[in-house]
């Protein structure tokens, strides 16, 4: 197994008085796609947000590329090489598609071949390049959201439910783009509710329940075991 690019050890995080993460231990191997699965409300999004420093871990450590990022401010974490695609399509609707993309490439202009690749993966972005992002459809906004993370080469991508609420045709486009990204050897931590997409993309997999990781292993193992799927995600688990 390759070395982990991201390692969470015993991470606890609270949102107001709620204890959302209760000791998350997670390893994301470099150059592979790790799926983070689990029912709604178990802490998947909070895990990603905590890695980004948008919520603070009050216990435990988060190590990215051999560097402790637990207490770093969010911009520093992003600049360390993590591309984050939030669940809520974190686009800027007042700016044009082009401005959104240029903003995402914080280290300089987007390379022409990279832009070509993005346009090939998401053709509508080329069509609406000069349009305000707020006028795009839901699926196009999601495309822009992912394309923004792809605007530069990142060492790790954190992608939160990219197919949520999208039409099947757009889900296929999205899955195709992510598979493309995977082929390039990107390290990805992907939260996904759509199990067929997860099975298609995932190399390894971690399942969360009640604020901690309750199972981790190869995606193929989980995909081939219906009883395990039912036990992990269909029913509530006993903690621990």
């Amino acid at each position: 197994m390759p070395d982990p690019i991201l390692r969470l050890s015993g991470v606890f995080a609270n949102i107001a008085q709620y204890h959302i993460l209760q000791g998350v231990d997670l390893e994301v191997p470099a150059g592979a796609v790790t799926m983070l699965l689990g029912r709604n409300g178990v802490g998947k999004t909070t895990t990603l947000r905590t890695v980004m420093g948008l919520w603070r871990a009050h216990r435990g450590s988060i190590v990215f590329a051999d560097r402790d990022i637990t207490a770093l401010p969010t911009p520093a974490i992003a600049r360390a090489g993590i591309g984050y695609v939030p669940e809520t399509m974190g686009i800027f609707s007042d700016l044009t598609v082009e401005e959104n993309m240029r903003l995402a490439a914080a280290s300089g202009p987007i390379a022409a071949d990279r832009l070509d690749w993005i346009f090939a993966a998401f053709p509508p972005l080329k069509t609406f390049w000069k349009k305000e992002a707020g006028t795009l459809s839901g699926g196009q906004k999601q495309m822009l959201s992912i394309a923004r993370a792809m605007a530069e080469e990142r060492r790790l991508y954190l992608i939160d439910e990219p197919t949520k609420g999208l039409a099947p045709a757009i889900i296929a486009t999205m899955a195709g783009a992510l598979r493309d990204l995977k082929k390039q050897g990107a390290s990805i931590l992907l939260v996904e509710q759509n199990f067929s997409v997860a099975r298609l993309l995932g190399d390894s997999c971690a399942v969360m329940d009640d604020g901690r990781i309750v199972w981790s292993g190869a995606m193929a193992e989980l995909a081939g075991d219906a009883a395990l799927q039912e036990r992990l995600m269909g029913l509530s688990l006993e903690a621990g």
Binding site: L54, Y84, G90, F92, D94, A106
Partner: peptide, 17 residues
């Protein structure tokens, strides 16, 4: 452009660096 992004959502702007 960064200012406009901050006006719309400062957390998102931080999350992209």
């Amino acid at each position: 452009r960064v200012l406009q992004a901050i006006r719309e959502n400062d957390f998102r702007t931080e999350a992209i660096g």
